[in-house]
Simulated assay, not measured.
Amino acid sequence: MTILITGAGGHIGRRLVDALAAQGETVVAVDIFDLHRTIDRPDHVTFRRGSVANMSEVLDVIKTHRVERIFHLGAMLSVVSESNHWESHQINVQGTMNVLEASRILGIKQVFFASSRGTYGLDTGDVVDDFTVQRPTLFYGSGKLYGEGVGRWYRAKFGLDFRALRYPTMMAPGVRTAGHWAPLMIEDAIQGRAHVAQASPSDLGAFLHVSDAVRGTLEIMNASAERVPRVVYNLAGIQNLTSALEMEAALVRRFPEFTVKYERENGPRATYSKFSDSQARHDWGWRPEIDDLDKLISAFERDASN
């Protein structure tokens, strides 16, 4: 099977390329950046530079490589989307529409879409689950919510097997998305460096290690249709939100000399305390492997040693 991955240069995309290539799949990896300069090319993998915002490029790559399945990860991230909403619309909204319409035209049967907990915003109850009303407050979240909705429409109207996951904060070495304070804190502790946190002790995060993100993505796409009655699912690693102070304490237990200086005294307060993936667990048997802070820190240590 030939599989197209958009956004293949991202943290999830790179690992998804490797995972599918290791399974013997033929992979076409597309990104706006030159992937030859950033990652090694496994066997069975073709790199293409291009943008999902360009419909002709999307059609060309699908036709040229006879793509049968698509993992649509390509997107402009949250902070950049806030500063350049028009380009974000072209990539995150029009780009998703291009992928779905090209799939309809060329007979692609199955498409995966990477969504985000950012579709919920802040006006929620204590537990955010798949039934929580989505009221995104940022442009990025609004674009992701559009992707969920239009994918649901393509599934109902044309029978496209559209499946999506809402990821929380992605955890992996090298993640430097603005506002995501946790990855660098863990890396500094492992490397024996004092840490200056661009956060307050009360800042909260819902964390998912990238290895679980990749595994969950493959599991939902490989599950039988009967086990995936919903179009979109939350995917969680550590379901209860973790404060920066709790993360610091867990790191100090492992690395007693580790110290943190906080740049802010008070941070934004999330209006919920748990990001629940109960429907994924119920419907297709999802279980994260990295579901507490100690396992998360150990995963970073393994990554650092590789």
Rank of each mutant, 00 (worst) to 15 (best):
G10W: 03
I12V: 15
G13N: 04
D18T: 06
A22N: 05
V30H: 01
D31V: 08
D31T: 06
L35W: 02
D40K: 13
R41D: 02
V45L: 07
F47W: 06
S51L: 11
V58Q: 02
E68C: 06
F71D: 05
M76R: 05
V79Y: 11
H85S: 15
E87W: 10
E87R: 14
S88I: 00
I91K: 02
V99W: 11
L100N: 05
Q110I: 10
Q110N: 10
V111K: 06
S116K: 03
T119G: 12
D123L: 14
T124A: 07
G149R: 03
G151F: 08
G151K: 03
Y154V: 13
Y154Q: 14
R163C: 02
A164E: 04
M171W: 02
G179K: 01
W181N: 00
I186C: 10
A199N: 01
D203T: 03
G205C: 15
S211A: 13
D212Y: 10
I220Q: 06
M221P: 07
V228T: 04
P229N: 01
R230D: 01
R230T: 01
R230Y: 01
L235A: 07
L235I: 14
Q239D: 11
A244W: 00
L245M: 13
L245V: 08
L251H: 00
R253M: 06
F255D: 00
P256V: 08
T259I: 05
K261E: 11
G267M: 00
T271A: 14
S273T: 12
K274D: 00
R281F: 09
R281P: 11
R287Q: 07
I290L: 08
D292L: 11
R302S: 14
N306R: 15
